[in-house]
Each structure stands twice: as C-alpha cells, then as structure tokens.
Design a binder for these strands. Sequence first.
DNA 1: CTTTTGACTACCT
DNA 2: GAGGTAGCCAAAA
Length: 116
Amino acid sequence: MNDVPRADSNIYEAIYDVVRSIPHGRVTSYGAIAKCLGAKSGARLVGYAMNGSHTVLPYVPAHRVVNRVGLLTGRHHFAPPELMQQLLEQEGIKVVDDQVQDFDSVFWDPAIELSL
DNA sequence: CTTTTGACTACCT
DNA sequence: GAGGTAGCCAAAA
C-alpha cells in the first residue's frame, strides 16, 4: 500500500487489543489473531494493521506477533530491524536466525486463552 | 466500482 | 523439500 491505514477502524482496534493481551514472554501468529477476530479477517489484515501499530497508543507489542512458524517476517518493519529479536530475547524468548526457538512452548493462542 | 498491495496461510506441483 | 499459485480481508487510489 501507499499509505498507513487509519487506526480509527474497529478492526484495527480489535487487533491491537488482542496483541496487547499477549502475555509477557509469549508470542502468537497473525492467523491466530485473525481467527480470534472471527476467522473472517485475513491474516494479512493483522499484519497490515501491525504496520500502523507503531503509531498507536498504548504501545502494541508487535514483536510478539510472528508468522505461523515463529518466523520474524515483520522484523524489517521495526526501526532497527534487530529490535524485534532483541525485545523477544529480553522476554526470555530465544530467537535464532529470525526463528523463534521452542515456538510451540511460547505460542499463545488468543482464540483459546481469551475464551477461557 | 475496479485495481493494487500487504508484517499471511494453505494447497499444489 | 522447495517454489509457485490461489484464497483471504481491508484500505487507498
């Protein structure tokens, strides 16, 4: 796209709300968030919303959102590309070669955790 | 209204 | 296993 989306849309607010709900030291995937929103919003929308997450407050921990295999596909969108990995490692998440280690162990599914 | 794009995912070859 | 194609939704032009 050419320009950043508006954070006024309800869809973005919903996505940001889920991302902010990610526990410390945990990560989730774009598809999981999309599914949490009703499985109707494409996973790409989540990533697209993340593009404007840095302009939204409170802060959205986009570094905890990775693709379905735990790959830091969006790290290049951070100010310093290495920031995403640094933040994850700060929370105790091991990242090697843009790949989250023990992804299955740190994975946090909003569709399940928020349904409890 | 149609086309394009994007930090995705799944299926197919 | 790796690469290509298609489906998916939302926003901007």
